[in-house]
Write a protein that binds this DNA or RNA. Structure first.
Lengths: 191, 191, 191, 191
DNA sequence: AATGAATGAGTGTTCATTCAT
DNA sequence: AATGAATGAACACTCATTCAT
């Protein structure tokens, strides 16, 4: 008996993502994944219990990668608003450049009963951003009378709409409009 | 002859919605709808050409109902911010109370090629809100240096996030937090 | 209670034939017939037990009409070979000009268990042609050592092939080739 | 892995033929084939793209087998009429012993757009017989004033009718009547 | 561990037939 | 007598999952 191939799950994830991008959520099938990964269908079932399990794990993986992108180039020593804008723009660009993945995450999240562990994990992943918000409050720069989560949602929602309309070519963004949008976000939460 | 049942399409719509709630967009099937509606599969095809036609008509119906809810109890003679808040809250409550429908509308909109008439309808829906924003600018109450659409997106995105987290039981809203949230939205756009 | 409409069955036959011509045997449906006849589906079932019954009766009707065409302009007082050629050409032209009907008759005949009454009827319809053959024998013009039926089949088969190839544009007939073909048929059966 | 079953297509062909025999062309369904073959419906689709593909391949297979039977035991060195009779009887017996197959071939040929390769195959099938006819002409035994194709049709048509009536139990053949029939065919074409 | 042939429940859709009006 | 809405079994085809190799 050979050892389980350590790299296989990753290969399957990649193939799954390709299929998801090409064929969308509805066109996703185990056979397509297997073909894309150049393995047999049966092989997938050695590493994942079933289709749902595969998608669940893919969801988590993409979620983690997303979070990582938010904090890219974030410098804790930089002035507060500068750091905040960094993270704000990171999320905007992530949503634009990884629109399909991002869309899958959202759809998937809404489409099924998400387990409590899942929820906790999601919470944990938001932590770095919450920390920044808390830091702003501690510095007296961010209004203290509202919940950190609400502040988070206010910014997040705006960014999502901006990105989605941009991708849909309804409302196209340039540097100037991005600056204006961040200014609006800042007015929303500043002390 | 048996008379054509005027109520049947409505029954089918209701059943479709139920199925959509239970099984989601992907799990939607004509057989499930028929069972839910206590009719034979073939009967659905007397009133709708095919699955796509059924979903299209359901989409339109829900869309119209949504628009009506947004402007409920909106009084044009009331003070500006009061009117704005009315619409703001209307949308929040709509999103919360009709979450699944709202979600279906969004998913459906994204999932297929939406015809131009559809797009025009979407524009039309936004019009009353855009008008309010413009009125705010004319009164010197809303900042004039940003596009109406961007102002719209800023508010819309926040509301959506709030409602979605509320429905998912992640962040539960009460009257106080709703007031705070509107205050944030207002700071975002005020002159 | 109104009396059964005497003309209805004929209307239904006509519509059935139209559908058969347009959509072929496979595309035949009761709904199409009803639409063509400008009546309701249910009405067909007042005059025919079911689809099979309708087709059976249509079959018989077309069969009778075919036989009538065979004897068109047949003059019993004309010289024997002249009369024979008349019938021979009649069948060829029938097969060519009413190819689809003729094809339906054949397909239908082969496709199901034909009842004994059906068979007797078919026999009876061949009678006039058999009579001509018998007359030829009596006159000493047709070979007497073979069965009338066999003589009939020899001519019939040739004509069918000629007509079918003509309709399929594989072997196109003109007056000269028709004369040659009849000559061959005559050699086949002459005393 | 389970090895691809080499015999499966043949099993499916056999079952298809059975269904065709029992239910006719119109009653042919993938489910019936699967049941007859004692396999799952899905399995058929591992070996054939779809229903049309299955029928096409069955058609080709039966076609080839037919051709082989026509020339069985044909001895080119034997006297001309003897050789001709061999082929003549071969076709008659083929039509009788493989009536349903033969009927399917005919119906299928007429029922759809037959590709050019198909047509060429059909031509190819006729070639040996045409060659024999030409040989008869060259030997001065067969009348030269009519087309080879017409001579072919004259014999073919007769044989078909004989066989069909025999199968339908309308006109039963024995050795004597077969001899007579060939004699008639020969009179038809001899110089 | 890896394979992919085999399975069969499920899909959207059609259509002969029934029956309340 | 006439209607056509309603039915549900049947159709071709798909796909997640299993299991013999």
């Amino acid at each position: 008996m050979r050892k389980k191939d350590e790299a296989k799950p990753e290969v399957i994830f990649e193939a799954s993502l390709d299929v998801l991008m090409d064929s969308g959520f509805g066109g996703f099938s185990m056979a397509k994944v297997a073909e894309r990964a150049n393995i047999a269908v049966g092989t997938i079932y050695l590493y994942f219990n079933n289709k749902e399990d595969l998608l669940n794990q893919l969801y988590l993986k993409l979620y983690k990668e997303s979070i990582e992108r938010f904090l890219e180039n974030y410098d804790t020593t930089a002035p507060f608003t500068e750091g905040l804008k960094r993270v704000w723009v990171n999320y905007l660009m992530h949503r634009i450049n990884h629109y399909k993945k991002s869309h899958f995450l959202e759809e998937y999240y809404k489409s099924r009963f998400i387990s409590d562990t899942h929820k906790q994990m999601a919470e944990q992943m938001k932590k770095p951003v919450h920390d920044i918000i808390q830091k702003g409050k501690d510095l007296g720069l961010v209004r203290k009378d509202v919940d950190n989560e609400m502040i988070f949602l206010g910014m997040l929602g705006f960014i999502r709409e901006l990105a989605d309309e941009h991708v849909a070519n309804v409302f196209v963004l340039d540097d100037n409009s991005i600056d204006k949008a961040f200014d609006m976000s800042w007015n929303m939460i500043k002390a």
